[in-house]
Design a protein around this nucleic acid. Structure first.
Lengths: 246, 246
DNA sequence: CCTTGACCTTGACGCCGCGTCAACATCTAC
DNA sequence: GTAGATGTTGACGCGGCGTCAAGGTCAAGG
């Protein structure tokens, strides 16, 4: 007993195009191909198709399905792997939905949160892992809570202050002012003051954050863009400031 | 102040490839292009980029982002539409995850649910609308509940019984046995008995279901594949049986 | 001046699972 | 014979870039 492609498609709830596709990728070959090129499927092919469609409904990719069906991979193992992927995606979606809801609420309240919050290289979510690794979970949590509590305008102001400080760092470096001189130490004081808006800065924190500016170009560029080598200059000036004044 | 593409990429947490892509699709043009073809971005471009990335993090497509940013579409409206999509997808994923978990449990218990539950052309979900239209909502609900309550093995057995009956219908038709004769009516009795597994068959139901076998090839093929014209044969035999015995 | 290495360009394919024409051959029924 | 349903292969499209490929440009150092 055999069926034409359209019969199979209707019986299985898929399409003839999909069946041809499965043939093309070597997932399901017709049991017979007529001299006219027509594809015919027998009972065995239907069973195989059914297994394919079952796994596909679960969201597996055609490649995995092929491996499972041909016995090259354990079905349970494939499903477990797949399940983890699905769950991760599901959680990602949940977070995204929350973000959209929040953003929607804010825009409806008329907030212009998409305005001019220029990049500051200190995005409190983007570098989450690094921040936690270096200063611990609480520091991150406090910082994140603080950041979340700010309005768009407050965030923008905060970043503007930093932008000004970075510009001054660049100018100081360009002018050749010594890192332990009055100019540099004055900027360092403002820098620490700026830092204290989000996190109460300890001596060790201030002394070491400069290393990160130098080591990590994602942070350092904020300074080096004004004048090359400024990140290192900032690092040294902050170390001096931490020793002297904290 | 302007920045080279790589600087912008690092500062914004994206890639130069993406920036070129945004340029190519008209989403974000560089503020200046050098005579050497190099792209440079100024503050305004950065602000625009930031809005792009914000919306992209929320999962919006580049096309929508373009419309929103260029003020051709209300941001709130776009976000609401998008939110509905996300929520639908989220629920779909949740259902899929449940399916995978169920399937995984079964395969781990050793059940061969991917085995030979061949298509029967009577899939209780596939033809939902038709079934409801012909026999009403309750009939469908009852049938669906019954079907759902069956295990894989029970479903397979149910379908195997039908497969046997269909084979016999084909043989009876081929042999030329009269539809009101002993052979055909015997098969009709088994057929009705089989039907009663899922739905208590009324006289009218039995008398008319044969019409559907003939009218709808998706159903009729199950019989005609054994011997052409068997669907009509079954229809006639069932009509006689309904009159005489129900 | 030359090299090295980092960075820039355009162009094009790949991914994933088919949907959707297009252009043409074949089967079925009247 | 002819219409209409159904079959074939071939190729593009989708979304958002990643990832070569092949080559031009620039700053720094010898």
């Amino acid at each position: 007993m055999e069926w034409a492609i359209q019969d199979v498609a209707r019986a299985s709830g898929t399409t003839s195009r999909a069946l041809r596709h499965y043939g093309a990728v070597g997932l399901l070959a017709p049991s017979r191909v007529g001299s006219n090129g027509y594809r015919y499927y027998d009972q065995a092919a239907l069973v195989r198709l059914q297994r394919i469609l079952l796994l596909r409904e679960l969201g597996l990719g055609l490649a995995s399905i092929g491996r499972v069906i041909d016995g090259q991979q354990d079905a349970a193992a494939a499903l477990r792997t797949h399940l983890r992927l699905l769950e991760a995606e599901w959680e990602r979606l949940a977070r995204q939905i929350e973000s959209v809801r929040t953003t929607l609420r804010k825009t409806e309240r008329g907030e212009q949160l998409m305005a001019a919050e220029a990049f500051d290289g200190f995005d409190h979510t983007q570098y989450k892992d690094e921040v936690i690794e270096r200063w611990g979970q609480d520091a991150y949590d406090r910082s994140a809570r603080w950041w979340e509590s700010q309005s768009g305008a407050e965030k923008a102001a905060h970043q503007q202050r930093h932008e000004d400080i970075a510009t001054d760092w660049g100018a100081a470096n360009r002018s050749g002012a010594p890192v332990d001189g009055e100019v540099a130490q004055g900027i360092a004081a403002r820098h620490v003051d700026w830092l204290s808006e989000s996190v109460p800065p300890s001596k060790g924190y201030v002394a070491n954050i400069g290393d990160m500016y130098v080591a990590d170009p994602r942070f350092g560029n904020n300074y080096d863009q004004h004048e090359p080598g400024t990140a290192a200059y900032v690092r040294d000036a902050l170390k001096v400031y931490a020793e002297r004044s904290l």
